[in-house]
Design a protein around this nucleic acid. Sequence first.
DNA 1: TTTTAAAATAAAAGCGTTTACATTTTTCGC
DNA 2: GCGAAAAATGTAAACGCTTTTATTTTAAAA
Lengths: 333, 333
Amino acid sequence: MNKKVTAMDVARLAGVSQSSVSRAFSKNASISNKKRKLILDAAEKLGYQPNAIARGLITNQSRIIGIVMRDVQNPFYPEVLEKFYSRLSEEGYQIMFINSQNDEIQEHEVSQLIEYSVEGVIITDALLTSAAVQKLNRNGISVVLFNRYISDSMSNAVICNNFSAGQKIGQYLLDTGHRHLGFISGPANTSTSLDRSRGFMDTLQKHGIEFIPMEDGSFTYQGGFAAAKNLMKHHDEIDALFCANDIMAFGAIDYLTTAGYRIPEDISVIGFDNVKMADWSSYTLTTWQQPVDEMIHQAVKLMLEDINGQQEEPEMNFVDGCLIERASVKDRR
Amino acid sequence: MNKKVTAMDVARLAGVSQSSVSRAFSKNASISNKKRKLILDAAEKLGYQPNAIARGLITNQSRIIGIVMRDVQNPFYPEVLEKFYSRLSEEGYQIMFINSQNDEIQEHEVSQLIEYSVEGVIITDALLTSAAVQKLNRNGISVVLFNRYISDSMSNAVICNNFSAGQKIGQYLLDTGHRHLGFISGPANTSTSLDRSRGFMDTLQKHGIEFIPMEDGSFTYQGGFAAAKNLMKHHDEIDALFCANDIMAFGAIDYLTTAGYRIPEDISVIGFDNVKMADWSSYTLTTWQQPVDEMIHQAVKLMLEDINGQQEEPEMNFVDGCLIERASVKDRR
DNA sequence: TTTTAAAATAAAAGCGTTTACATTTTTCGC
DNA sequence: GCGAAAAATGTAAACGCTTTTATTTTAAAA
C-alpha cells in the first residue's frame, strides 16, 4: 500500500512548481509545450494520477452522476444502465449507482447523493417524493426522471409517450380484429402504467368499448403469470391481452401456454418495451419499442443543460417509439 | 442553485467552533450531549449534510467501491449488482459503476477508479490484465475478483468451484443414462468456462469417453442458439447438452425446439447459474446454482479485510453450489 | 476552598487540488 | 536593441472537512 503520488511529487521531480503540474494536466492552461512535456514525463515515471476528490473539492464539481434504479431485474433496466454509462462516460462523468430497495426512494439515499456532491441524478423506475426532489434541488443537484414523471414537481423528464402508444396499441388490436381485450397493468402509482392504460382505454372507448377486464401484474414475471391466470378464470372470452411491459407479457404467455391456450391462435399477446428477450423464439413477442437510445440521449442532454445552467425551465420530453410486429398477435379479420 | 451549507455555517448558527460541528457528526468524539444536540438541531435547520468529498480528502478514505462489469445483459449480473449494492450499503460504502465495454478492462477505466480514490474494486465478468492489477495495487486499491481468477496474480477471488461442478454435472448426465453428450462453452479465455469444461471432461474421461462435440457459444443467447445448431448439424446423435451458462442454454433450447427436438424427451439440456428465468415455465431448466449470496458475502468480507489491512495474503475462496433439478433433463435409464 | 486531573472546546494545520495574483521570461514591433 | 505587451511560471489562498495541539471548563480529590 504505497503512499499515493501527488502533484507535489511530480513537481519536485520535474523541478517546477506544483501549480505548473496542475496546469500541465488542464486542457487550456497557459503553459509551454516544453514544460508540459517535461511534467508529463515525470508524471508518467511516477505513475501520477490527479486526485479527482481533491479537484472536486476546489472546483465544486464532482463529475459524478447518480443513477437510481429499482427493478434491476427487469431486463429493460440493465440495458438502460449500460447505455447511460456509455453516454455519461463520453462526457467525462462517473456513475454512482443506487439501487433503491423500496418503492419510494429513501431519505438516506438522497442524503448519500448529496454527501457525495453528485452533480445530477437520474431516476429510473423509482418513485420520488416531491420532498426528495426539493431536497436535491436545494442542494443544487439536477434531476432528470427517466421513463416516469411527477406532475406536481418541476423536474426534467424524458418519457415514452405512453398515452399515445397505448392508443395505438388499442387501435392495432382492434384493427386486427380482436373484440375481447384484456389488460395487465403495472403498479397503479406509476405514470408509466397509468398512461399506457389510459391511452389504451381511450381508443377502446372511441369504439364503444367501455369496460375491459384488468389485473395488476406489478411489472413482474410472476405478477404477469398470476394476472393472466385470474383474468382467464373469469373472462375466458378474451382474445387479446395487452401487458404494460414485456416481462409481464412473458409471464402471461407462460401461463397461457401451460393452461393450453395457443399464442396467437387462441389469444394474442402484446407487450411494451421491446427488451432483447422479446425476440427470442420462445416468445417472439409483438411489442412497443421504446426508443431507448434517443431517450438516453435526451436525458443526458437535459442533464447537461441543467448542470451548466443553460436551462430556464425544466423540460418534459416525450418520444414516440413504434410497434414491433412479431408473432404473438394474430390477424383475425 | 443555492450555495451549499457547510459545517462553518452550522457552527455560526450554533455559536460553536467548526471543529465541534465535525465532532458532533462523528461517532466517538469527545463532545457533551448538550452541545451535540444544539449542533444537530442547527444542522437540521439549515439542512446541512457533511461533504463526503472533503471528508475523503482529509481522511484519505473515499468510502467508494468500484464495481466493474461487462456483460450486464446476462441476467445473472444485475442480480449480482443488486446484491453487492445491498451488502456494501450496509457497510457504508457507495458504488461506482463501470461497465467495461471491451473484453479486457481498459487502461482508462483503471485510471478513473484511481482518480476517484476508490478503496476497492470488484471485478465481475471482465478480464483484468496483470498490469491493471498491479497498477491498482500500487495505488493501494484492493481488488477482489468475482466469479473468475487469474492464476499469475495475487488477487483475492471468490469463485464457484467450477471444476467440481462440471464433474458433478457430467456424473449426473451419465447417471441419468445419457451417452452422447455435447458441450457449449463460453469464451476460451474465461476461467469460468474453462474450469466447467475441464471438470465435465474429467468425469467423462473416467468413464471412457475421450471426446465430445463442443461449440463456443460465447456466453450469449445468440451464441447458444448458433452453437446448438452447429452441434446438431454434425452430431445428430447427441442426447444431452451441457451449456456453460443459462443464457446459452436458453438459446440452445430455443434452437432445438424450433428445429423440432423435444426437451427433454429427445435431448436433455443443462445450464449453469440458475438465473431467475431458469424457473420460467418456458424453460424449466435444470441447472447448477451458484450460491450468489454466499459468494457476495465472502467477496465483501475479503474486500473489507484487505482494505483494513487485516490480510496477509490474497485469498481464493471456492464455493460449491448445487444442482437444481427441473424439467430439462430426462432420466433415460 | 485549593489543587489537579479529566473532559470539552477552540484554534490551527493539512489533505491535494485549482486559480487569482504577482513575478519573471519571452516575443515582437519599431 | 529597447520597451511594452503577452506568455509562462511561481506564490499563496482557498475548498470543507478531520485531527492534532492548545486552551478552557468541569469534575474530583484533598
